[in-house]
């Protein structure tokens, strides 16, 4: 499974970012959201940007310690915090800018598909983010 953005449905409300950060960080914190709205201007066009869960994941390939592994149940590439050394090679490697670095913890973070029930998909009022099997 992976997520697909339907840009023309996005209103730029950032509800996905807010719920994503609550789910993963326990706080409303867009800077830590795994999904980000890209906006050409304040009034759009907007594109929800989130990990594509690539077949051949550049982030995983770039990781020197193999800290990014595929969760076979969901199909999500997941960062293993215990392994991650915070080198940011994955952040540089991702062509979609969909993996991020948390300077506080020194770890990379990215979309993990919420274990199979993505929060952003459930909450987007207009279906701008959808699950693709």
């Amino acid at each position: 499974m992976h997520l697909e953005a339907i840009a023309e449905k996005c209103t730029g409300c950032r509800i996905c970012e807010n719920f994503c950060s609550v789910k993963h960080e326990g706080a409303i914190w867009p800077e830590r959201a795994r999904i980000r709205i890209l906006a050409e201007t304040d009034s759009g066009p907007f594109t929800p940007n989130v990990c594509r869960q690539c077949e051949d994941a550049a982030c995983a390939a770039a990781c020197p310690v193999e800290a990014i592994t595929k969760d076979q149940a969901t199909g999500a590439w997941v960062v293993n915090d215990d392994e991650c050394i915070g080198c940011e090679s994955c952040v540089e490697a991702c062509p979609y800018h969909a993996i991020f670095f948390d300077a506080e913890s020194g770890k990379a973070f990215k979309c993990d598909l919420c274990g199979g029930e993505p929060e952003c998909v459930a909450i987007c009022p207009f279906g701008a983010v959808q699950k693709v099997p």
């Binding site: 023309e8 209103t11 730029g12 409300c13 950032r14 509800i15 807010n18 009034s43 759009g44 066009p45 009022p125 207009f126």
Partner: peptide, 28 residues
């Protein structure tokens, strides 16, 4: 032009409008 929303709003009652032609063309 398109639907727009304020922060965190599922109603998205705002819209972008653009005058397509005439003396006020491109007023957005």
């Amino acid at each position: 032009v398109r639907d727009l929303a304020c922060f965190g709003c599922p109603v998205a009652c705002d819209k972008l409008y653009r005058v397509p032609d005439g003396p006020y063309a491109e007023t957005a």
